[in-house]
Design a binder for these strands. Sequence first.
DNA 1: ACGGTGCCGGCATTGGTCGA
DNA 2: TCGACCAATGCCGGCACCGT
Length: 496
Amino acid sequence: MGRDSSHPQQRGTHGGARRGAGRPPKDSESAAQLRPSRTALPRHTPQASQVVPGPFFRPRRPTQPVPGDASNTFWAAAHPESTALDGDTDGLGGSGMTTNEVRQLQDDLGFVSENDEHADIARGDALVDESLMGEVLEEEERVDEEEDDARPTLLPESSITRYLRSVRDRVQAEIDIHGEPMCYRRNDLYERAPHQLFALKACFTRTQQDEHPEDILYARDVCIWLPHLLFGAPDSFKCFCGRKLSRNGFNDKPIARRVRSMPVDFYLMTNRFVCDPRRIGDSGCGMNSQGTDPLILGQLPRFVQEAFPAYIITRAAISKTLLWQMRNTFATRFGPAPFAELISEIQYRHHAECELMYVAAAHFYGIVNANRFSEFGNKLQYNASPPTVSYLKGVFTDYMTAHRVFIDRYVASLPLTIAKADHTFDFLKYMGGFKGEHIFTAAYIILNEWEQNPWPCSDYDQITGLREGYMDTDSGGVEGSESSSDTDCIYRLSAG
DNA sequence: ACGGTGCCGGCATTGGTCGA
DNA sequence: TCGACCAATGCCGGCACCGT
């Protein structure tokens, strides 16, 4: 992967290259134990023989009934005891659920929708209170350290910063004149960067003096997310404290937030809100928030929320489409590492094509002494930065944590007639690990006859439990077969 | 050889505050 | 009401070393 060659890091002065950085040598471990270390703490404390279920798809409340034909679902198959609950077993509408169960389910769903203030936020669906991104980099307090290092010289302003400022100024001017950005009038959320083709023409045929003529080549799409100007926005957004929020201008540093995407990243520009404590008569609590905050997004209509183009995690943002691809690929052998490679390859490929077009255009327009096209990682110009493996793992883990309750419910409601316990060899080898925790701890996956959602099991005991669960039902018996292939065993729940 | 882990500087991002 | 400044926070990524 290419490094930013425009700002070469001096060897021995940065990060792990510094003296004392990195994992301590083995023979110095005894000395390292003198100070508290994360490695000294147990990551988790399961007994060695204890079965640790997969963290993501485990039902939160094993006693909670699920919708659908309760005798014919994954959840019922895995929890046969639940089918023998006391009370009215006639079921409602043939669902197999008792009246009490239906009432409890309705109460639970109602509680979620009424009490979870963020339950309706489309792109997050739930907040991750404690991001794993933060946990993984959480550092213990360290002793005072000398601060003799000279401050590095400040970088000159980058192309994208100048471009974003021009976009912000233009948007502000458009709002002053028209009441909304012109991109909204064009039925678009984005201030689109010029296509490379037209950017090259503008770059090589310019007639007026421009201090930074190449900036246009390195522009990126900017999503203009101004909640108060979107459809269905309330007259005033409400703060957590219940008082109204005042608009508090645009961000300046940075002007817009970078969102990882393919083949190039884009930027998300929004404005800020404040619960103004200086407001006369109705002074607020002073809380600041971005226009992309769940607090703000949650007060927009659902269809507007759905239009939000990114998933924002603490100090990280990734485009919706990229995360969808992660969900699709991470569920199989295609883990975070190859996915990071994929993104990197595509971004490099895109950069190479841009460079090729640049050189060819310079030749076409007869520019002999054209500047070199920016290198891939040049922070002042092209400024590409493919997400790393750990970044993708962190984002994905946070996303799954936020959505676990919804995935649990979906999986629990799936019908099941044939259960296939799928054990893929080398499975764990391809699963992403994160600080020693595998994203999927499952070695086995249970699928229904339509290969629908995997139901991870941490060991063979759960497969056996499923089999016994079938045995216990009055559905007519179980046919079992086992093989040494990838699909270890298939159980058919006969129709009776 | 490959992947996991820990260290730590740079800087992206946040949010408090104040002035126009 | 809005824009802008600025300090604080802590995430991101490169590197060295260890384990398998």
